[in-house]
Write a protein that binds this DNA or RNA. Sequence first.
DNA 1: AAGGAAAATAAAAACGTTTTTATTTTGACA
DNA 2: TGTCAAAATAAAAACGTTTTTATTTTCCTT
Lengths: 355, 355
Amino acid sequence: MAAHMHKTRRAPAPTIKTLAEITGYSIATISKALRESPVVAPVTRDLIFKAAREVGYQANARGMALRTGKSFQAAVLMPVTAARDYEWDGVEYTQILSGVSQALDGTDYRMSVHVIRDAADGAEAARRIVDQGLADGLIFSGILADDPRIDLLVDHHFPFVSMGRCRKDLDYAHVDIDNEWAAHAATARLLAGGHRRIALVNPERRFSYAMDRLDGFARAFREAGIAASADLIVEGDLSTHFGRQSVIDLLQVAEPPTAFVCINESTTLGVLSGLGSLGRQVGVDVDVIAYDDINVSAYFTPPITTFYQPIEVLGRTLGQFLLKRMEGEDPKALRQVFRPTLIERQPDNLGGRLA
Amino acid sequence: MAAHMHKTRRAPAPTIKTLAEITGYSIATISKALRESPVVAPVTRDLIFKAAREVGYQANARGMALRTGKSFQAAVLMPVTAARDYEWDGVEYTQILSGVSQALDGTDYRMSVHVIRDAADGAEAARRIVDQGLADGLIFSGILADDPRIDLLVDHHFPFVSMGRCRKDLDYAHVDIDNEWAAHAATARLLAGGHRRIALVNPERRFSYAMDRLDGFARAFREAGIAASADLIVEGDLSTHFGRQSVIDLLQVAEPPTAFVCINESTTLGVLSGLGSLGRQVGVDVDVIAYDDINVSAYFTPPITTFYQPIEVLGRTLGQFLLKRMEGEDPKALRQVFRPTLIERQPDNLGGRLA
DNA sequence: AAGGAAAATAAAAACGTTTTTATTTTGACA
DNA sequence: TGTCAAAATAAAAACGTTTTTATTTTCCTT
């Protein structure tokens, strides 16, 4: 141990200049060699790579960023509602971020997260990201039927992938869940079980996927030749509170529903809570089919039938698509719609009394 | 409208050079003026600001970053376990990110999120962030009793704020929940209600807060002069599955517990599910007290008593502390331990039959 | 062996800042 | 009015890259 070991001065990180000095080549050659440009001789390339490995060279992201004008950031807009008592909100985002991060692993891109509080906030964030070059690509969800972010980004030729589709015919990369199909399947299942008065607990109508679900719901009735129980459609934020309140409201109408189609875990928990507090038993007095974000419906009492799609897979696809988009790939080639799998945990016909 | 309106060529974003040309000052003066340096005359400063506003000047983050060596990134390590069926995991992180983001709002800092899969991964991520200067500050949670990240960052004088305290006596900024207190309070409450056989559903012992909770649990028994039901302590990942399995295991012992102290929402749901499937009724056969991450226990059937702390507040504090740390403030001044509030929803004495 | 094209490398400029150093302008004082 | 310090501004260098342009080296052809 050296006698005077005052705060070990860390050696400055090696740069291409360091490598130039070590190898005797110019920084231009170093730069080209490191990026495997064909103009530098293979033998010198190898030499330079070796030197780089030896000194532990790491390209300085800031230098690259300035010169290339890129930020090496993949931005994700994460919605968080401001409502005080609505803290379940956005639980699935952990999975999305995890998936995106997986896709980005091993690339030069980092993931930056921009929290947005509503649609307007999201549009503003997107604009800031484009204008200031805060990121090289963007991922976002909560797509509106007519979403200003999609318009903006398409217009600016800015690489992005949306989770969800808007209702305009535009070319853009996206990943989605087949909500029309899922809502149809859930409704058809209940109709087949003998239910006629079916409630749909749905998101607000401005969301594109709310429309998709309405479509699926209507189609199931249409195909069964039965008039849809349109008066049992409720729309709201997807909070637990909303789910609970919906049940309380719906069970007071003249012909109350015998079944519920729920949109996510949070509302489902609210619906179950509401039913419980009114003394109704799931599987006996009413049936509930849900869409499951975080695979937790198995633990509800009783376990209920759900449609399930591992959200992390969507996240990973979002990330992969974004990488390709940032490399200039045609957005037309970057679209995928996932069909969730049905997990049956109940007969969904009031224990056989309906079918 | 111009006749030939081919793809509107966007004017390049104004730089300090643009401002220099407009105002006639040198770029040096522009730079100093914009950062309100006292060496530039107030009248010219105002002039330059006016020009900047007029052309919509926005400092180029990449240029700043290169010159200053800063990244203007505040990094957050977000843990996500790989386990396939454990998707509830990390639900509270949305709230943390939201809080951090709120604190960062209006500053030059952006939030980047690094997903980590375990403790080793986290240590590696921290090292990469320090070595490559990927961020100017770091926030992380899931603190181990002896956490290598804290050692590393303290050693490197790298600004960070941890959510949770390690069990070493070091000077570092942190935010925490008073887990010792909460576990003590929950246990004492159950003891006062007449319970003697109390189960503790706890995280793995390597986590610092697991130790804190063990301490609080033990202290409650000690203060009551009763031998702790140490054989009813279970430790595991905090999945719903673990909660459920714990109940199934614990109810098979010779003297089974009459009450459960749970650590988070996820395990609590599992515990309730397990109790339900064994036909035990909460509030009748057993009592459950939980710690509530996302304020959803009110919707469990029946609602249970919890300790609750809005996690977003912690997130905000983490962000605020990090900003101060990055400005060089003494970490000793940046510590805060929150006591969650008790939300009573049950008598917690088996409906009066114990007290 | 000279000439010239091709290959390899080097030099220089540029990206947008900040900071250090140098120069000019101002204003007080004798 | 000339001198000098202080105030204000300008010039230049630097951060670490990439890219364009220039130079040198290699090697083939005659």
